[in-house]
Amino acid sequence: MISLIKRNKILLIILILLILFNSISPICGAGLWASPPEFKYNLSSSETINGEILVRNIGKEDLEVVVEKKRLLKDSINLLYSDKGIATWITILNNETNFKLSPGQSKTIQFKVTAPEKINYFDAVGALLIRGVPIESQNNNGVNIKQGVELVIPIIVGLPGPIIESLQLLDHKAPIVLLSFMPGDFIYNLNNNGTVYANMTGNIEINGLISSHKVPIEGGVFPEDNYTLIEKWTPGFSDFGLYSADTTIKYGRYQQTKTIKTHDTILVIPVWLIILIILGAVVWYMRRNDIKSPFKIKIERR
């Protein structure tokens, strides 16, 4: 009898564990896995190097897989691709650019990178895009979305050439007027006109009469790439008046030794001041036009 109760308890625990496991692990999805997630090579002119990526279908759907070679451009929001530059140096071997993968099935994609004879820059960033879209029948009712996945595998090539660290601020925008709790965007359009990757650090120092704030900056720009850096600042309840916003962007390939600086002025109007002004205006209008208040407060002496 006791052993029967024990067995039931064990079965119940196993059942709960199974339910918990199922609630954690995703089901009915499209998924891709690849190793390694990036490549870094140093090449001499005309040198060729070979590489390979293992790709696996980790979802529950049959996938139509397409492999593309691109030049990679990115900023804090967007990933963009081009067919120029390093994209032309990469070759996907054995014509394996389109194939099917069943759930659990793997495939090795081989490629080679050949540096050009004439080298224009030191750091070049390409990528292999491995896209898997489910081969599933369309639902004939309603508005439906078929969801696929894509792995972006960067191929970063360092080439012998002049190391020029140069970042140019094309333009920048800062908010002029902000209300309390209203986020403001600081937008910096940068162009790497040097020959190497520019690691960026820095901050925006926002100083007012009674308070000061620091917004950290972090990012990186590839050579010949444009980068839109967007940072946000939201004034708090106690912030009001004129604020100076001094931006310092330090950059360099390894050590951030070069600097870009900007200066802006922001007027912060606090919400409590707006409410006071509106109340004052209403009271002034009512007194001027002899309008009696619908609310009466009577203070009696005892």
Binding site: P26, C28, G29, A30, G31, L32, W33, A34, S35, P36, P37, E38, I58, G59, E61, P134, E136, N139, N141, G142, V143, N144, I145, K146, Q147, G148, V149, L151, I153
Partner: peptide
């Protein structure tokens, strides 16, 4: 070794949406 992977639920649906509907 490093490995990168992503999965997403599929398919998904808005269901039946009447013409002229905003924010389905």
């Amino acid at each position: 070794p490093q490995a990168i992977a992503i999965s997403v639920e599929t398919p998904i649906s808005f269901g039946s949406v009447p013409a002229g509907t905003n924010y389905a």
